[in-house]
Amino acid sequence: MQQRKQAPEGPHFSVGSLLAVALGGFLGAAARILLAVLIPENPAFPATTLAVNVTGTAALGFFSVYFAVHPRLRDWCRAGIGTGFLGAFTTFSTLVIFLLGAPVALALLYVGLSLGLCGLAAWLAVRLTEAHYSAKGRGPMILEGTDAREPWQGPSQSSGEES
């Protein structure tokens, strides 16, 4: 089966992908801004931004596996969901701006929580999605950097690498 490698090379340019990124970015930004209005941010601790980043990262973890086991999915679809919607939904700049204005202890707590929870969310989402497809007997080993031509080892094999 011909397998499309998900980026180390990153997305490839096409006008269709660019338009999908625009649409996804529009919706992702609108969702982020609406959430910020519905759950007003506490200036002393931006929990809404944290929640948005954690859920968006988990969703991208899921989609990175999903995209890899569905190699025939169109490029513009991947770009629209991943780069567009989830990329625009989550934000790095708001986090950094808060860090710059916060007292050191709070800044350390916030950056630790952000990186820890986002990292955990990504890891859990990837592992659970892999386990799901593994149980169905499908799928190459996916994430960028892995050689897609090697036979899939299954998630249990890969667990040793990351501990």
């Binding site: 801004i33 989830l86 700049s93 990186l115 990504a122 994430l143 990351e162």
Partner: peptide
């Protein structure tokens, strides 16, 4: 806010380390 991204950053970090 949209120019920056947390999700791509963290998933890339995970993918690289894995």
């Amino acid at each position: 806010g949209s120019l920056s991204t947390m999700s791509t950053l963290m998933v890339s970090v995970l993918a690289l380390s894995r």
